[in-house]
Nucleic acid binder design. Structure first.
Lengths: 353, 353
DNA sequence: TAGTGATGCTTAATCGTTTAAGCAAAACAT
DNA sequence: ATGTTTTGCTTAAACGATTAAGCATCACTA
């Protein structure tokens, strides 16, 4: 009874999708011929190809991606791991990756770690489970243990890192020149007449933040400015952290006259505190952020920041992946592409003479 | 020659992943038994199950998702289409969907239409190609033609809309009560003493914006306020559009004393123009936005806005999808879930008495 | 006119997993 | 002791596409 019912239900529900077999039946040729015709195989006559394509259209045929992926051992999916999606930088990077990859027939599976190492590991498992052909990732701030990323490499699929990468991991990397960016910022502040430049930075164990710190310190030396420990702070660079670090700096006997913050979010927090304390920006203290998030131009005063060329980073990362797909054999030379960043000067550091 | 080389290369490269067949060989049982053991089939002895799972672990076995999806006709993937990813609302909705769906073994494929109808169609094709089990979508502003969405329905997979949905399309929908939200806003402004309330709204053909407009108009009637055509403007609700519409309102002989903007982004643009014209907010003109984007609390003055319960929307949409998966037979009753929104009062409309 | 090559298909195996159907052997009932 | 059920597996056929190998047929060459 129940069995018969379930069979009946099946019969109702199953609008069988058309397969190459259906097309083959219509034209009285083999499924193999259909498959080849659809892929423009040279061993199929033009006449047959046309007929096949016409019938395919008529029957509303759509290839079953799962079947071909299984057979070919290739899913045409690319996994992406980003720390956050709500940051303009990351969503812009991803958008430009998508454009490049879609053109080449790849689709994207997006995941975000939300800056958590555990979530990052979950994401990697998910992506490997889904049989992606490769992974493009930017690491969470707290990620130090790289075992999980090695898991990707042992699977034999390409891994490309962007922005937040580790040099220990022997993989391709795309990012901007953080060291140099710090130099540009310090130079700009010096030109505005600043003499005591503080830095609210990220944690040293993340390479990009370490590079920004090194760049800051070396630039201070270049301009013979004081490099005082109390002016160099490390933190998580959230808005909240920016507020806390700014409070800390304001409590100093000898206050800085400029602050370079390694993230726009923390810079915003710092700006809030400055305004709450009626400190004029930039006249009393100049402020520079990092990342060129859209809100930097929305707040008052608008915040000077570093443009990270997100579109370019996304494009290059996607292209690097595509190169891997072309040459499946292990390539010796690694791609480490470092772009030059650009300073966008706004009101928060434009000191009128 | 070339052939032998290619075979050689294959031999080098192929680290064959372990399959159930490998496990079967080790234990001298059939692959079918292994499959059942891994799925805790009742017809397999506990002893065998344990052995299978142990060997699976030892051989680092990971099920091939493509194969099982093909066989079962189910990919365990859910497609998501959002107009934008850089808005806090959408990324928050998606994040909460992901949480619910991951728990039930589903993975997400994210796409964004970037408010373009063409891109939206592409996304639908992509998702159908990837054999997703269902689609959860929010429509682009410019989407009017619904043929592409019908394509999803004819495929026989569930479609759930959120936030931006059309009632013509006979599908499940999750959103907030836009009509009522307008009422709450107008009431709040009246309580602050405002007498001429303008509305910078979205295009009427998008249902949610139409509802906000209707709510605005009906609320004005309720409070016996003037409903003047020059105070009701339609637009794309970008920052730029907000600026333009604000300029337009300032040129009126009889200026409004409050502005309700149907999007935080446009509200921000309006705020910029107000500040540029040295108009005090809220004393001269009060301002209310919509969406509770994080920047509303960051700018000066902070902007009063409507919280759309993004987490709840995401959760409900995901749960609705899961219900479809449980009961594959056509359900009669549609789920239309309308949540109540919440007004977050901030400085831009807090008029000191 | 036999031999060679190109052309245009077909056959059948394969990717890894699931599942309906079947079949021994053990367990239990009568 | 015989029949029935349950247990615990195996067999084999799918899912839909791809592809190596094979086989006619025809054209052309020497």
């Amino acid at each position: 009874m129940l069995k018969r019912l379930s069979k009946y239900i099946k019969k109702i529900n199953i609008k069988r999708k058309t397969t190459i077999k259906d097309i083959a039946n219509v034209l009285n040729i083999s499924p193999a011929a259909v498959s080849k015709a659809l892929h423009d195989d040279s061993r199929i006559s033009e006449k047959t190809k046309k007929a096949v394509k016409q019938v395919a259209k008529n029957l509303n045929y759509h290839p079953n991606h799962l079947a071909s992926a299984l057979r070919k051992g290739k899913s045409n999916l690319v996994g992406i791991i980003a720390p956050r999606t709500n940051s303009h930088f990351f969503s812009s990077v991803v958008q430009s990756m998508e454009e490049v990859l879609n053109k080449k027939g790849y689709n994207i599976i997006m995941t975000h770690s939300n800056e958590s190492y555990k979530k990052e590991c979950d994401n990697i498992d998910t992506l490997l489970y889904t049989q992606v052909d490769g992974i493009i990732a930017s690491m969470a701030n707290e990620t130090i243990d790289l075992n999980y990323y090695n898991k990707i490499k042992t699977k034999g699929i390409p891994l490309i890192l962007f922005d937040r990468g580790e040099n220990d991991l022997n993989v391709d990397y795309i990012g901007i020149d953080d060291y140099k960016s710090s130099g540009i910022i310090v130079q700009h502040l010096v030109e505005q007449g600043c003499k005591r430049i503080a830095h609210i930075g990220g944690y040293k164990h993340t390479r990009i933040f370490n590079n920004r710190i090194r760049g800051y310190m070396d630039a201070l030396k270049t301009y013979h400015l004081p490099l005082e420990p109390e002016l160099l702070l490390e933190g998580s660079l959230t808005i909240k952290d920016g507020r806390a670090k700014m409070q800390q700096l304001l409590e100093l006997k000898n206050r800085p006259d400029a602050i370079y913050v390694a993230s726009d979010y923390a810079a915003l927090g710092a700006l809030q505190v400055l305004k709450e304390n009626n400190i004029r920006v930039p006249q009393d203290i100049a402020l520079v952020g990092f990342g060129n998030e859209p809100f930097t131009s929305m707040v008052t005063p608008s915040i000077t920041s570093i443009n990270q060329h997100s579109e370019e980073i996304g494009k290059l990362a996607a292209q690097t992946f595509l190169e891997h797909m072309k040459a499946p054999v292990i390539k010796q030379s690694l791609n480490k592409k470092i772009l030059e960043a650009e300073l966008i000067v706004r009101d928060s550091s434009r000191i009128k003479n």
